[in-house]
Simulated assay, not measured.
Amino acid sequence: MLSVRKSPYAFIGIVAVLTAAAAIAASVYTGVGLRDPEGFLGPAYIRLPLLAVLMFVAGLIPAAIRRCGWKQVPRGVVEVIRYEWTLRRVLCICTGLLVFYVCYVGYRNLKSVLPILTGEVLWDTELAVLDQWIFGDVNPAFVFQDIFGTGFSAALLSFVYLIYLPVVPISLGVVLVFSRDLTVGAWYATAMSLNWIVGTVSYYLLPAVGPIYYEGTAAAYNALPETNTSALQDALWQNRETFLADPVNADVIHGVAAFASLHCSVTFTMALFAHLVIRNNILRFVGWAFFGLTFLATLYFGWHYLVDSLAGVLIGWLCVAIGAWATGNWRTRRRTLESDLTADDDDAPRGPAGARLPASTV
């Protein structure tokens, strides 16, 4: 049996294969064809490799300058590529992007056929009652609108909620490309990929559409101004109706599901991973602030019930923990991306004569 420390992508690779098989089986059973979801910078199979190339280029020039100086950038570029970009490193980066892509596409397609496989069973009534009980028999929408208002807060939270879409793949590209310790990149890729899988399971455990779409609570959000988030909510519900009208021939992917909040699980994963890996306090603060504002936005706009977002936090923690175990990072001391890039160890790149090359940012 392969050691997870020697093969950090073995675990998530198996998970990706099983996810693909489940998505294909669901497609065959329902008759709904598999689709590659469009998104930031186009289809996933285009934007992920493109982001990796952009991250590589972004780090290559500074690394070349640090290695050989401003006047010998071309020689520096050659040395960085020759001595630092080993075949194993390139393969690990490609594997991280591939497993993330397979898990994400599988998740989107399994989420799309959710209403077909679960039928009319929805848990919104129970989740809404629980929400009101938690908030003292008051609709949470009114609580958040009273506390934060419906002006600047709505615009800020809308921005934070939507910036999640490009931040997720960009963060993956940054960690995979910039981390010299390959197990750190594998850890992050595994944790992020697992969010899609565990989140899909949660959708099927408690199918729900969320407060903004549930007839018992939707009217409470009418006081919110028009934002890009509200436009997205309208588009997703229209896609749901189009899909349900003719699932087999619909040209859209169904994307409505409340329990659990993957916005919360993914941003918590990002924040917790950064907290464990990065020593820069500013970056760690940004990570936690991004998660906190995202958590608030999921409730403020009615995407999720409180229990959905709390479950998302649990999923995020679980994914980081499993990712650490699967990639051999479970008992490893806290490390930093900065120290990974400048560590004086046996894995540091060497020149033709065996001399240790200067550290770089790639």
Score class of each variant (00 low, 15 high):
Leu110Gln: 02
Lys111Ile: 05
Ser112Leu: 07
Leu117Met: 13
Thr118Glu: 15
Gly119Phe: 01
Gly119Ala: 04
Trp123Tyr: 14
Trp123Asp: 02
Trp123Ile: 06
Thr125Ala: 15
Thr125Val: 09
Glu126Pro: 01
Leu130Gln: 04
Leu130Phe: 10
Trp133Lys: 12
Trp133Ile: 07
Gly136Ser: 01
Ala141Lys: 09
Ala141Trp: 11
Phe142Pro: 02
Val143Gly: 02
Gln145Leu: 08
Asp146Lys: 13
Ile147Leu: 15
Ile147Gln: 12
Phe152Val: 14
Ser153Gln: 04
Ser153Trp: 05
Ile163Gln: 00
Ile163Arg: 02
Leu165Glu: 05
Leu165Asn: 10
Pro166Leu: 03
Val167Glu: 07
Val168Gln: 02
Ile170Leu: 15
Ile170Asn: 11
Ile170Ala: 11
Leu172Met: 09
Gly173Met: 08
Gly173Asn: 07
Val175Tyr: 03
Val177Asp: 07
Phe178Glu: 01
Arg180Tyr: 15
Arg180Cys: 13
Asp181His: 11
Asp181Val: 08
Val184Asp: 12
Gly185Glu: 06
Ala191Gln: 08
Ala191Phe: 04
Met192Val: 14
Asn195Ile: 11
Asn195Trp: 09
Ile197Asp: 04
Gly199Glu: 12
Thr200Leu: 12
Thr200Gln: 12
Ser202Arg: 03
Tyr204Ser: 14
Leu205Ala: 15
Pro211Glu: 13
Pro211Tyr: 08
Ile212Glu: 09
Ile212Tyr: 13
Tyr214Lys: 11
Gly216Asp: 09
Ala220Asn: 10
Tyr221Gln: 05
Leu224His: 10
Asn228Val: 05
Thr229Pro: 02
Ser230Asp: 01
Asp234Leu: 11
Gln238Leu: 14
Thr242Pro: 06
Phe243Lys: 08
Val248Ala: 15
Asn249Glu: 01
Asp251Tyr: 03
Val252Asp: 10
